[in-house]
Amino acid sequence: MDIKNTIKNYFHEMTLNELHLMNDGTDWDISYNSLLYLDLINMTPNCTGSYLAEKLNISKAAVTLKLNELIKDGLVVKKQSEEDRRVFYVEVSSESEDYYKQYGKALNRAILKVKEKYDEKEIQIFCAILDEIRSEYIREMENEK
């Protein structure tokens, strides 16, 4: 078993699943670029436009344009911070959350099957390996800048 190809195949299937989600014939008319923004916002607690600009290595103005589009389309909501009134957070809307729940069903079923097949120690080792790969990948990407 080749770890690199296994990871590439996993990401390939996840990408295809996201493309399928946006083209599944429902009324959710969304571009892949918008879906990537939603993924990032969905995975980031207290997400801000500045954070998105930094992570995506694009201007704050470009992020603001995209966020305004997502807000107008009802896919994202903007909330003012209670601690600092100058800060606004963005999060996926309840409409977007409904689509994520649908999207997550297959992953949740797959995880349940894995939990039936492997014991807790094996799952912890697997998670530790994935975390290490992620950390090393991030470190290598930063070194290439």
Results as ranks from 00 to 15, higher is better:
65 L>C: 10
97 E>Y: 07
77 V>N: 01
140 E>M: 12
28 W>E: 11
18 E>N: 15
45 P>D: 13
68 N>M: 00
62 A>P: 01
64 T>D: 14
7 I>E: 05
110 A>I: 05
112 L>G: 07
77 V>M: 01
125 I>A: 13
85 R>C: 09
97 E>L: 13
88 F>S: 07
103 Y>G: 00
104 G>Y: 10
6 T>W: 07
1 M>K: 14
76 V>R: 01
6 T>S: 14
138 I>D: 08
78 K>H: 02
137 Y>S: 15
60 K>D: 15
61 A>T: 07
103 Y>E: 01
130 L>M: 11
29 D>S: 13
115 K>T: 06
91 E>R: 03
76 V>P: 03
43 M>D: 14
38 L>Q: 05
105 K>G: 07
7 I>F: 08
42 N>M: 07
1 M>C: 09
113 K>Q: 12
125 I>F: 09
45 P>F: 04
81 S>V: 00
32 Y>A: 02
72 K>R: 09
40 L>D: 08
143 N>M: 14
1 M>D: 10
65 L>A: 10
130 L>C: 12
116 E>T: 06
51 Y>V: 03
122 E>N: 11
138 I>R: 11
29 D>M: 11
75 L>F: 10
143 N>V: 03
36 L>W: 00
116 E>F: 05
121 K>A: 14
67 L>D: 00
29 D>K: 12
69 E>Y: 04
42 N>Y: 09
27 D>N: 15
16 L>R: 12
73 D>H: 00
118 Y>F: 15
39 D>L: 04
100 Y>Q: 05
135 S>A: 15
133 I>N: 03
81 S>M: 00
143 N>H: 13
111 I>V: 13
123 I>V: 15
47 C>K: 04
123 I>N: 09
75 L>D: 07
51 Y>Q: 03
141 M>G: 07
53 A>D: 07
92 V>K: 01
69 E>T: 13
83 E>V: 08
136 E>H: 11
141 M>E: 14
95 E>C: 05
66 K>W: 09
10 Y>L: 13
59 S>Q: 00
145 K>S: 01
32 Y>L: 01
41 I>Y: 04
140 E>T: 11
58 I>L: 09
58 I>K: 12
122 E>C: 08
3 I>Y: 00
58 I>W: 02
81 S>A: 09
62 A>C: 02
61 A>S: 08
132 E>V: 13
1 M>I: 11
66 K>T: 14
20 H>D: 15
57 N>Y: 10
123 I>S: 01
2 D>E: 14
67 L>M: 14
135 S>H: 14
10 Y>N: 05
132 E>G: 15
71 I>G: 00
128 A>W: 02
59 S>C: 02
120 E>D: 15
57 N>P: 03
134 R>T: 07
91 E>Y: 04
37 Y>A: 05
6 T>Y: 12
35 L>H: 06
123 I>A: 08
82 E>K: 12
46 N>R: 13
86 R>P: 03
38 L>F: 06
28 W>G: 02
78 K>W: 04
3 I>S: 08
116 E>W: 04
35 L>D: 04
105 K>A: 11
52 L>H: 04
62 A>M: 08
100 Y>K: 02
114 V>I: 11
137 Y>H: 10
34 S>F: 04
55 K>R: 15
135 S>R: 15
101 K>E: 11
126 F>K: 02
97 E>M: 11
119 D>Q: 14
54 E>T: 02
81 S>Y: 08
24 D>R: 04
101 K>S: 13
94 S>L: 10
3 I>D: 06
131 D>I: 06
